[in-house]
Simulated assay, not measured.
Amino acid sequence: MKLKIYQIDAFTNKVFKGNYAGVIILEEWLSTELMQQIATENNLSETAFAFKNAQNIYEIRWFSPMTEIDFCGHATLATAFVLFKENASFEKVIFTAKAVGDLSVEKLDSGYIQMTFPNRKPKVIDSIPKELLSGLSITPNEVLHNQQAYFAVFSNEEDIYSIDVNLEELKKLAPYDVVITSKSKEYDFISRYFWPANGGDEDPVTGSIHTGLAPYWADKLNKNELIAHQASKRGGLLKCKVLEEKVIISGQAVLYLEGYITI
């Protein structure tokens, strides 16, 4: 069996930047075991598998090299990029996923791809896990939590770049990941994302976590349109708009590779 595969760099307009994702558009679902094996072999942040159902909606699933992921923004962006590239008439795509429901994605004239996601605003927690504090070399000013991760907030932008993390300690927070964030001089806010329990060490750019970051910073900065930068080595730029129940995240993407895998 041969499957066509694309490798896309998401949340960037340059190859070797942003976050990499494999994309495979299926004619029928593969077994979960086989999809995980493919994702492990690819060894990318995520590999997305999409299948168009009878309602012309694309069911989508995301796999890290380690496990299936409930929600992945950059691989959704990458998959939409592939569908728009291969279908010139497409202006909008609807994805559906078990954990997050329907996701509307549109192609904009600016070259950006706009994704409408659920608002997953985090809440302040009273008791900070000791593993989080021992896993970060600098103590955060505030810690919040949503269904995806712990949010460690810092007042000094330089802390985001200089902080050391103990991944073995952060892994103990499973199934939750950890994002560190601060206000920024050049952007509205910056962040870094660590997910040793679910995918690897540091994720280059994480679209899904901005459904929590953007609402948090929208309240703090008193504005609902924000520019975000994920401050990993590869880096990525995200445009965010916060609505009452939705967060609209826009980004660019570029093709790095297309070819076939043989199973």
Rank of each mutant, 00 (worst) to 15 (best):
V82S: 06
I25M: 02
M35W: 00
F154Q: 00
F90Y: 10
Y187V: 06
Q147I: 15
I60S: 06
V242W: 01
A174V: 11
I248A: 03
N43E: 14
T67Y: 11
N198H: 13
I60N: 05
K172A: 10
D102F: 12
T211N: 09
Q55D: 14
V165E: 09
N224W: 06
W195F: 13
A78T: 00
F151T: 01
A54E: 15
S232A: 07
Q37S: 15
F117R: 11
A21C: 06
I180L: 00
A75F: 05
L3T: 08
I5P: 09
L144I: 07
G207Q: 05
K107Q: 13
K246P: 07
E142H: 10
I190H: 02
N56D: 15
K185R: 14
S155V: 10
F51W: 12
A54T: 14
K171T: 10
E28R: 03
I209M: 08
N53L: 05
I60E: 04
F16H: 02
H210N: 07
L257V: 12
F81G: 06
T76F: 06
T96N: 09
E157H: 02
A54R: 14
N198D: 09
V242G: 01
K246L: 11
G236T: 08
N87D: 04
D159A: 11
D201F: 15
E41F: 15
A149T: 08
T139A: 11
K183V: 14
N198I: 12
Q7E: 09
E186D: 08
K183G: 12
A75T: 04
R192H: 01
K92P: 06
K52L: 12
T139E: 12
V82D: 01
G22D: 06
E158N: 15
G200A: 02
T206P: 08
D109K: 15
V179L: 11
E244S: 11
T12A: 07
L170M: 10
T47A: 06
I249S: 01
Y6T: 02
A10I: 00
P65C: 04
A149Q: 12
Y256S: 04
T79C: 02
D164G: 12
I69D: 12
F194W: 00
G200C: 01
P122D: 07
P129S: 05
T12E: 00
M1F: 09
D219F: 10
N19R: 02
N87H: 07
A231H: 03
I38Q: 04
R120A: 13
E68W: 05
S31N: 09
L243D: 11
F11P: 03
I57T: 05
E157K: 00
L226W: 03
L136D: 01
L221S: 02
M35N: 03
Y256I: 05
A50T: 09
K17L: 10
L26C: 06
I209W: 02
V124A: 10
L170W: 07
K123P: 10
D177W: 09
K4F: 06
L238F: 04
N42Q: 15
F11H: 01
L255R: 06
L167D: 08
V165R: 11
E168G: 13
A253D: 01
Y216A: 09
P118H: 08
T32E: 12
L44Y: 02
F11E: 05
I227G: 10
K107S: 08
E244F: 07
K172E: 11
